[in-house]
Design a protein around this nucleic acid. Structure first.
Lengths: 213, 213
DNA sequence: GCTTTATAACTGACCGGTCAGTCATTTCTC
DNA sequence: GAGAAATGACTGACCGGTCAGTTATAAAGC
């Protein structure tokens, strides 16, 4: 029995998985263009190159499709985030730079920021999904950020500052950038590289000069 | 001829204006609960205590109603912002404190932040409205912020930093807070007073201690 | 003051388009 | 040819928008 060739069953499953991914990709495209409520499943089907009925072979409902889109987009990010957390090294400032760079790369850049906007827009209609996003992305990101800050305070790099709200404050710049990119970018472009650099500088250095009074 | 009593015509107009405001208030409520696309005009009518047909005596379409809701919410803020701009005094740091406090009071607090979320959610479907929001709120706010920063640099309070992107970075914390308040607040409360204080501290002071190397 | 007339405000049943979801039929694969 | 996969015509609930008819308010005529 040849091990290298896939069995018919394997190919069938692989094809099915591919279909599923195509559908999710198409759905993300359509949702990001017009929002969940206005999105038509016919459009999703067309973009995926199948008929509408096929969607229902893979997902129970439009809502279920939406939830799968979000979960599928987020899960890989979690894993990467986990991996990064385990290789802490360097100064706290460097850690924070890495952390924010990671956010800009994975959360603010192209595909993922769409998910953020969809959660903001549809969150109230999908409590379970909102909670999932909170647990998966926000809480985790905030915990990581808080740990870096605490480490920096410990080493004397950072000054002692307010508690829980600080982490969100540190990440806020990236959130705003992700939103800008989707809502205003077409007419009022924002250079994300420059912006993120400013963000990091501002957070690390602060606006005020060091006045030694 | 008694001047103090309103004529019949005056009362009629006042009533009409009141109706209009009731409808806008009801629409804002419904839109903020379920978003524009999912909102039913029957619900808006019921909440305003009129029938659906009445809505069309005041607004041309659902879209027009939405646009009026947004504009009505924003215009008073512009005027207040204008007024504040003209009474510049104190240090740049104080100005910035005032500016951010104003944002938290007028943009992040109760009713107005809903508009921000609606723009984020529906913006792509309403280019004209998005542009209006940009011009009315964002551009104006950013210009004011930039001017304060420039003033601070001039007086030597602030260090020289990157240009256009800085203002947005300074305001980002408030944007994130406004979003949080609507999407996650019910399950994961955020103390806005503490948060805004941290925001101002962070922006003004920066994370890093003054290391004189 | 009372009745009639005019007008503005409002109503809610109705219409027509839209679209999520279904299912009998066809196509593909082995 | 058996069974899985895919199709797309079809259904029916839904909802934005309309409009013929009703009510409220005010002005005009006596």
């Amino acid at each position: 029995m040849p091990v290298q060739s896939l069995s018919a069953e394997d190919r069938r499953l692989a094809h099915k998985e591919q279909r599923r991914e195509d559908l999710i990709k198409a759905a993300l495209d359509v949702f990001s263009r017009v929002g969940f409520a206005s999105a038509k499943l016919d459009d999703v089907a067309e973009e995926a190159g199948v008929s509408k009925g096929t969607i229902y072979l893979y997902f129970d409902s439009k809502e279920a499709l939406f939830e799968d889109v979000v979960r599928t987009q987020l899960l890989p990010v979690i894993e990467q985030a986990e991996a990064r957390l385990s290789q802490f090294q360097g100064s706290a400032a460097d850690m924070l730079r890495q952390q924010l760079a990671f956010m800009y790369n994975k959360v603010v850049s192209e595909d993922r920021r769409v998910v953020m906007r969809l959660i903001i827009a549809e969150g109230p209609n999908f409590p379970a999904l909102t909670e999932f996003y909170y647990k998966t992305v926000l809480a985790r990101g905030m915990t990581a950020t808080r740990k870096i800050i605490e480490y920096g305070v410990q080493t004397g790099e950072f000054r002692q500052m307010g508690g829980d709200t600080l982490a969100l404050n540190v990440m806020a710049g990236a959130v705003a950038a992700g939103i800008w990119a989707q809502v205003f970018q077409p007419h009022h472009p924002l250079d994300l590289d420059v912006y993120s650099q400013t963000h990091i500088d501002l957070i690390l250095g602060g606006l005020c000069v060091r006045n030694e009074d």
